[in-house]
Design a protein around this nucleic acid. Structure first.
Length: 569
RNA sequence: GCGCCCAUAGCUCAGUGGAUAGAGCAACGGUCUUCGGAACCGUCGGUCGGGGGUUCGAAUCCCUCUGGGCGCGCCA
């Protein structure tokens, strides 16, 4: 399918050159030509402001430049008219017959309508969620999950072959604490007297009590004398099942689960360390090289650690790769992990991270540079925190309490589609205040239903049409009027929206577009009746054809957001 | 103190240097209802946080101030 702004930009570029060749315009270098829909419909369907930008280099009034360019615009089947408007715009109107024909194009392309070749032949990987299996997914993680999966869907629409990956760590202190917490709950379930620690080392979540009861049922007292290990294994297994089920409820599924531990087992982290050392970016010391007097005073008697000289790449300070205990920090495997990803040959790698991981992402980038790898294919989307409000007060996103702050709670109280939409429909850069009371109370006024209702209405028409034995076959779309064309114009913007969303990794644009599209649709549905007895049979067919195309577009858009396209509501 | 992000209608938020800054919700008033009650139409609502600057043109780019968020571990 054509991307109209590109097509029109090509026409304008051609026109500028033709005008120069004809002596209507002086010689100058062709600037970037930006084509976009104007704000007001009376200004046409697409506008070029290039004449304004050229005023200086051409030494003429913008309106005159626009006039001379417009004169040379070649004809094209999709262009209806070209007009100029003060102070120097060139406005394009699409051909009505061409627009009507797009109805057939959309129907013919069906589920792949508006597919782009931006990423054709390219492989992309999106890594998201990546929560360690210590507890149920929180609302905060849900935002990253929705952004990640939606980004993956947008990239697929743009033509990429996309892999979804989940990076996790099932070793370390937190997992040991989890195992130990389950062990204590298990002993409790056996009726033993146990002391529960009240510090952060103990996971208080109710889910561990459930796991403990399951374990008693399965194993009886067999584990009564076991250490934390088998409990950690069991908790991890059940936690992952839970996480996958939760994600599945909102249509999220990962292709690859990558265990951080495999980087230890394969020796990859030590290879990375060696490589960094050979390249001179590593040193052993008690304190970083640039430590000031205060740091030195702070030194609390630790031994020598292995440092990464990240300051050479602009970091504010050097980072520890291996603690004085000999144990690597999180940074080293993280660098190794990204080196691994790059080694897998993706053309594009996207990381979805919370804002608290920003610095870590930068350090990883420096690490890749130090390894001589190109970090430009790794792109990071930082999403700001979700502040959960309940009863007008913030709810702490703590895994330990588990009161109405998990993905499951959110889905239970609203719906999978509402969660997908609400989490997507804002820029990742904006802090998201998620008012749970409002989300529950206002679920009926939610834009998600407004958008889905457009699809439902189309489906309803075809149910009724089938009941009456009316079909849209052999329709003459030429009979359609300005109302329907308004929708087709908006529908054709989808390609442009996907392009921008894919290029800039801004999946949320689909959500806003969907709302706009529904807003154009509903008034038309209100006035353009297909099956009313006043409507002549030929017009009836044409209108049915229109609604069929509308249904295709809404289904496409909803699917791209991981939402359902219901036939009933 | 330093780094990154944010500040636009009463609320939640869009806005890729271009024409008169938009939408939803809320509020108020209407219309529909033979495929529609999660619908449609209208009204109200703005010093784009403040101040400088760049530009033919700034909500958008730069500087600065104010106010919020997140980070600034030999945690992950």
């Amino acid at each position: 399918m054509k991307l109209l702004p590109h097509e029109i930009a090509a026409l304008v570029a051609h026109a500028v050159q033709a005008a120069q060749a004809a002596g209507d315009l002086p010689a100058f270098e062709l600037p970037a030509i930006d084509i976009r829909p104007p704000k007001r419909p009376e200004q046409g369907d697409y506008a070029a402001s290039v004449a304004l930008a050229l005023a200086k280099s051409a030494g003429m009034a913008p309106l005159e430049i626009a006039n001379r360019i417009a004169k040379h615009v070649p004809s094209a089947d999709f262009i209806g008219s070209v007009e100029i408007a003060p102070p120097g715009y060139i406005n394009f109107r699409l051909s009505e017959s061409w627009l009507k024909q797009q109805i057939e194009t959309i129907i013919a392309e069906g589920e792949s309508a508006f597919a782009l070749d931006l990423g054709a032949g390219k492989r992309a990987q999106v890594e998201f969620v990546s929560a360690n299996p210590t507890g149920p997914l929180t609302v905060g993680r849900t935002r990253g999950g929705v952004i990640g999966d939606s980004t993956a869907r947008v990239l697929e629409a743009a033509g990429y072959e996309v892999e979804r990956e989940y990076y996790f760590n099932n070793a370390g202190r937190q997992m040991r604490n989890l195992g130990n917490s389950l062990r204590l709950r298990y002993l409790q379930a056996l009726g033993r007297e146990v002391q529960l620690p009240d510090d952060d080392s103990f996971y208080q979540g109710k889910y561990l009590i459930d796991f403990a009861n399951e374990l008693v049922k399965e194993q009886g007292e067999a584990l009564a004398d076991a250490d934390w290990q088998p409990f950690k294994d069991y908790a991890e297994k059940r936690m992952f099942e839970w996480i996958k089920t939760s994600l599945g409820r909102i249509q999220i599924r990962h292709d690859v689960f990558f265990n951080e531990n495999s980087l230890y087992e394969s020796g990859a982290i030590w290879q990375v360390l060696e490589e960094l050392e050979e390249r001179g970016y590593v040193y052993k010391a008690v304190l970083p090289e640039d430590a000031d007097a205060e740091d030195k005073a702070d030194n609390d008697g630790k031994g020598e650690a292995v440092w990464f000289r990240s300051t050479q790449f602009g970091d504010t300070k050097d980072r520890v790769l291996v603690k004085s205990s000999g144990e690597p920090t999180y940074t080293l495997p993280d660098i190794a992990y990204h080196a691994n990803k790059i080694g897998r040959g993706f053309d594009l790698m996207v990381n979805i991270l919370g804002s608290d991981h920003l610095v870590q992402a930068q350090v990883v980038k420096y690490g890749l540079m130090a390894l001589g790898l190109d970090p430009s294919k790794v792109r990071v989307i930082i999403n700001q925190m979700v502040l959960v409000m309940q009863d007008g007060k913030p709810v702490r996103g703590s895994t330990r309490r588990g009161i109405f702050d998990t993905l499951d709670d959110l889905v239970d109280e609203t719906s999978p589609d509402a969660v997908r939409y609400l989490m997507l429909a804002r820029s990742p850069d904006s802090q998201h205040t998620f008012d749970l009371d409002l989300a529950v109370k206002q679920s009926n006024d939610n834009p998600v239903y407004y958008i889905q209702n457009a699809h439902v209405r189309c489906a309803g028409i075809f149910r009724e049409a089938a009941a009456r034995g009316v079909s849209d076959e052999g329709a003459d779309v030429g009979l359609l009027s300005a109302d329907e064309l308004r929708f087709i114009r908006k529908a054709l913007e989808l390609g442009e929206v996907i392009e921008v969303a894919a290029r800039n990794l801004e999946a949320y644009r689909i959500a806003f577009y969907a709302q706009e599209l529904a807003q154009v649709f509903h008034p038309i549905y209100d006035s353009v009746r297909a099956l009313h007895s006043d409507v002549p049979p030929e017009l009836q067919k044409a209108r049915l054809r229109f609604y069929r195309a509308a249904q295709v577009v809404f289904k496409r858009v909803l699917t791209m957001m991981g939402m359902t396209a219901p036939d009933y509501m």
